[in-house]
Design a protein around this nucleic acid. Structure first.
Lengths: 196, 196, 196, 196
DNA sequence: TATGAATGAGCCTTCATTCAT
DNA sequence: GATGAATGAAGGCTCATTCAT
């Protein structure tokens, strides 16, 4: 348990293997081979095969949300923050296609993730989006009566589906490039009503 | 393969079992017991366990899209169609919580479903949404330069996430009630730009 | 679970395999092969590998004690009963050397047997011996102040060690033949004191 | 192999661990932790895990038999020697309950111990008992035609079962106190026949 | 000598699928 | 068609043992 690098190596190896074969089709021994260690060694760092996936998700998600949080902090207002958020969300996935594959396709496995251990990490992302929207409302950039929770889920859902479609379409185009269009549609959707 | 009802019974039993235990934790014998038949009998109607899930998804999805298509046909314009679509999407899930659980949580499992056999059925839903959006553009209700494919994915993603959150939140509120708010945000988002 | 013969076959196969290789060195697949069935089939009849051993012990012990109980019922008095009991105890083991090997050597494995599930069956044997000794005391054939519990353990221990030594000595002589000598020493030991 | 104390420490640690969890449920690392050393260090003193158990048994048995031999040497005749032997056998176990647990329950495991390496040590105990009985015959205290080998096994078996029952009964009474009764029954059993 | 991280052989058990009835 | 007992491949995990430090 000494070497935290070893733990990290296993996670990275798991990302590659899961991206290639899917979680259920991946053997613990596949991950070990990919990481260049013996199968038994995995169990010095992770309790079970599931533990690898859960940890992978938590780590990556925490990193993801952390990066986003830091990046949008500099933006002057909520509108700019949303634009930045969308583009970054896309860019980070595009920059790491194997992770994108795992996050968008493999990590949706049933009860195990959305419920249970990983829900905290998803909650953190929702909280981040929500706070930006609240800020926009306070700044008068978004509708005063905006149902923030609903809008939060809509934005996340929209980005998530964009990413999933991109992954399933074998990444045959630039996801990041579509960021501005996504941001604009959403921003107009939550803007002060034109008739108001 | 004589009795198509028998095939249907198995699908319905599978929905209940998958909703309760998840796909990977469900045994073929569990489904058989739920359907009141012997395990071996399942193989007279389905080639493999996966086949049950794929068929379940296809059947339900085709039914889902078919219902939506019919329901929105009567609506006078694209705006009304979107409103109807969103509310119906939500209502159908809310009316069948076990199916909702399976569709939103269990049916996201890995490569098997997003890719491969079931992608056609999802494609049909995307095509339906896309045609409504095209219609709105043609009718001058939506932006002329609307990136329809992107907007399609955004609307689907938004609805899908709304549904998933509702399922994961143990369905503690009315999903259908949030339909109008979702529709309005989206519709404003794709409407003719206020500044135009 | 239908065929009780199948269950019995597995037990008998297990006796042979355990006698040959010992419990911990025996694989479930060894037992299956010996029984002429697939390894998985074992699990239709027994919950775990341990369950095989426990059931084996219980069955054989119950059979053993049952036979003894019936056989000594005919004897006219406690002295004759003890003589019969010792000889039969030895004869039954001698007639089934593989079972003897398992019972005397393999079945002594730690906590699992003496404590826990199988203690009842051993208790039944102790009760049988004890009742014979009580009878002998009541009939005036044994010391009036005989500590029956102690004498019971002594007789069982003496027979058990005779059997174990015989098994470990590769059964190079007749165990049954030593029965009378064992019975006489014990009977004299518990008889009315000579000086009394 | 420098430090014989270290070797002894490991044996003592093993006794405690085996008494607590049983041999097969004890990990080499458990013994190391109990001994306050690293797991690898054990292999500087013992070849295998089995070797620990075998050595433990040999050491303790040699000590046991040695003590008994010395203690009974002073006794004036075979009768006194048997009385002393029984009580001491019981007392030594009662004075070291953890060792008793291991010897009576754990050390009976399969082929490994009864046969092979440890049989010598048991043989030494049998020889000691046998010599006392021979002496008794020679002194005219026991039957002239006493089958000494049989009587030896019977006495050992009786004591052994007394001890086992006491251990399994959670040591809820004094084993040593039952020594005299055991000795008397045995002694009467091997005494000159009353009718002779 | 001591360490303890790493190894990897080994096995029990599960369960989708088959097939004789 | 229906059954369900039987199959047997497959894999996660343990842990005694090694060896570089």
């Amino acid at each position: 348990m000494r070497d935290p690098d070893r733990s990290q190596n296993i996670i990275e190896a798991a990302v590659r293997v899961f991206a290639r074969k899917g979680y259920y089709n991946s053997r613990v021994s596949d991950i070990a081979r990919e990481a260049g260690i013996a199968a038994g060694t995995i169990y010095l760092y992770f309790k079970t095969k599931d533990d690898i996936l859960v940890t992978l998700f938590r780590d990556k998600m925490a990193e993801f949300v952390g990066s986003l949080r830091k990046a949008i902090a500099d933006e002057p207002d909520a509108v700019a923050k949303v634009r930045r958020l969308v583009v970054l969300h896309f860019r980070m996935l595009e920059d790491d296609p194997e992770l994108a594959e795992v996050v968008q396709v493999e990590l949706r496995q049933g009860q195990k993730f959305f419920r249970g251990a990983s829900s905290q990490e998803i909650g953190a992302y929702f909280a981040l989006i929500g706070s930006v929207l609240e800020e926009g409302v306070a700044q008068g950039r978004f509708r005063q009566d905006l149902p923030v929770k609903i809008a939060t889920k809509m934005l996340f859902g929209a980005m998530d589906q964009m990413a999933t479609s991109w992954v399933l379409g074998k990444r045959g185009y630039s996801l990041t490039d579509s960021g501005p269009a996504v941001a604009e549609i959403f921003l107009q959707g939550v803007a002060m009503s034109p008739g108001a």
